[in-house]
Design a protein around this nucleic acid. Structure first.
Lengths: 253, 253
DNA sequence: AAGTGGTCTAGACCACTGC
DNA sequence: CAGTGGTCTAGACCACTTA
């Protein structure tokens, strides 16, 4: 009742396969017919079959592995990032919220510090930190893993005026993470701002997050403020969109 | 320095074009060489050129129009959805925050009420509203337009026990929108929860949002609670990912 | 009418997997 | 080794836009 003009054959076939999957005829984890079989079954060329598979992959319904086949994707367990993930109670518990959330699902969590360096900040960081030209920042790059698959990349930028000479420059800034280290320097987290966007992964991210090309990422810019409303850090999160949910709880005035 | 194994020719060519665009050799709004010209220039087949274009489209760098050509995308103006978009101050001002935000950018905003109906709620709505079997809800479907292009679809579900017989069942529930109507019924908004995900558009959404296939959407589930912590409504937002930013301001404990 | 993107064909070769 | 997905070719036809 919807399509007024004829659908391309590739979309038709993709729709049939999608319906078979949703109807449970093809169970999660199971193998689709091979491309050659689909060529014979639907009387279409290999190029078209390849496009059909590309369409299904782009919606995250299937994953392909060269030499093995195309599999119906297992519904990924979502990782929830709660609004209170920065709350003091987490720091005091000594367990990072990411780790707690993931392990509660029976999966293993790991964080890797990729690099720590003093750099000249990109302008979008300098702006948000209220820095002038010449001011430098400490950049901490982290990668978060679940079951040894990267799901999240985080770059944190901290004004050198705050970080210089403190444990923030060390690989492990101490128990409770960087926000505990901020408190030791007298900067208490009172407020934060997050800007959330959805976009396609950039080139390097496809590999770093081993996201299937065609699945989007959540791009989150986080800014923390201390008791004087001075920005303490800007953190840039890139999360695999299909495996993460952000939750926010907001009081209204 | 990065690629250990040979890149497919289609990605190589896509990279060259992307660099040309980023270097400013191809300005936003300008026309790329036609597919036939690219075939000749890069000595590749038409199928490969088509794939190159598909790659560039999938990152949102270009848009194609049949019969016209492929254009470097103009950087879209972002629509910001502020954390305080439900604040009472907006209701009292009589101007919806969406409209205010968009018009501040010199663009035109419009909301269309697509349908209002009493229905049996989907289970994910019933769960969040705390409804049992047999309870019904009022569903209000809206589409939001900027410059006459749809950028946002919203479905709002309200328990019939709250909405029945009130102005919430009318197309225009009164000045100040539905939250003002809630207040008239004695339900004051005190708290809300949002769950944010990034995903690819589903079939119908590609057309309704006239999003280029290949650009993701933000999927936001919003739940409002009144002074008794009773859920008043569940709203499901689908936004074009490339044109919207969500911002959240969060106090810490 | 000429040019455009979108789709498709009927093959081919490649790197990879698993037996 | 046979089978798999990924990529590519050298065409073709279609619906569409612009002039």
């Amino acid at each position: 009742m919807a399509d007024r003009r004829r659908m391309p054959r590739s979309r038709e076939v993709a729709r049939e396969l999608r319906q078979a999957i949703e109807a449970g005829e093809l169970l999660p984890g199971s193998l689709l017919p091979s491309e050659r079989e689909l060529v014979a079954k639907y009387q279409i060329s290999s190029g078209t079959v390849n496009k059909v598979i590309a369409l299904l992959k782009s919606t995250g319904l299937v994953v392909s592995e060269v030499g093995r086949g195309v599999f119906v994707r297992r519904r990924p367990q979502l990782i929830r990032h709660a609004h209170d993930r920065y709350a003091r109670r987490w720091r005091e518990s000594g367990k990072a919220p990411f780790k707690a959330e993931v392990e509660a699902q029976g999966r293993s969590a790991r964080v890797e510090v990729t690099s720590i360096a003093r750099i000249e900040p990109p302008k979008w960081v300098a702006e948000r930190l209220g820095l002038g030209g010449g001011d430098h920042v400490l950049r901490r790059e982290n990668t978060y893993y679940v079951d040894d698959a990267a799901v999240q990349i985080v770059n944190t930028y901290i004004p050198l005026s705050i970080a210089e000479g403190t444990s923030l420059e060390e690989e492990v800034p101490g128990p409770g993470g960087i926000y505990a280290a901020f408190e030791e320097q007298g900067h208490r987290l009172t407020r934060m701002l997050e800007e959330v966007q959805a976009r396609m992964p950039r080139n390097g991210e496809v590999e770093r997050l081993n996201a299937e090309p065609g699945t989007p990422v959540l791009d989150v810019l986080h800014i923390s403020y201390d008791q004087d409303d001075t920005p303490m850090d800007v953190s840039h999160f890139v999360l695999r969109g299909d495996e993460n949910v952000l939750t926010y709880e907001l009081p209204t005035e």
